[in-house]
Amino acid sequence: MHEWAIAMSVIQTMEKWAKERGVNIMKVVVSLPSLSMLDLDIMRDAFKILKKNTVLENSEFEVRVRDTDFDCRNCGRRFSLEEIKRQLSEVFENYGEENPLHLLPAFVSSFARCPFCGSHDFTSELSVLVDGIDYESDA
């Protein structure tokens, strides 16, 4: 459900960015961490509706999912989401659709351990990222 709020955060950020630089945005590429399992159709609909009556009215929004890799700060190994999926299935079962990882994926180290050393001490880039912007000067 909070896909709308996330779309709004991107719209507001891009509006400000465009205004500060006096540019016209043609396309924005947004990436979401696979862990958050955000609904891409809802995201796309939200962008379509929220951009109306803003400077982004004619901008295209491309939304994609990026794989999440984790770096263990304890043993130094890197692992993929796939490797901890079994550990996380409990979270999805216990909390249902609006589970904590869907809402705030940065919670992940509390709910899983490094598959190599068992530590909770691992990190990853789990933000909503703007990966690319196509724009042209307003003038």
Binding site: R73, L103, A106, F107, S109, S110, H120, D121, T123, L126
Partner: peptide
């Protein structure tokens, strides 16, 4: 109210992300 009555342990970088997203959302 997001995780229920259980412990939380976060590396510093994720702490930033949790607080920022919690306030934003």
């Amino acid at each position: 109210g997001l995780i229920g009555d259980r412990y939380l342990i976060l590396p510093g970088s994720q702490e930033r992300s949790v607080v920022e997203s919690f306030m934003a959302l």
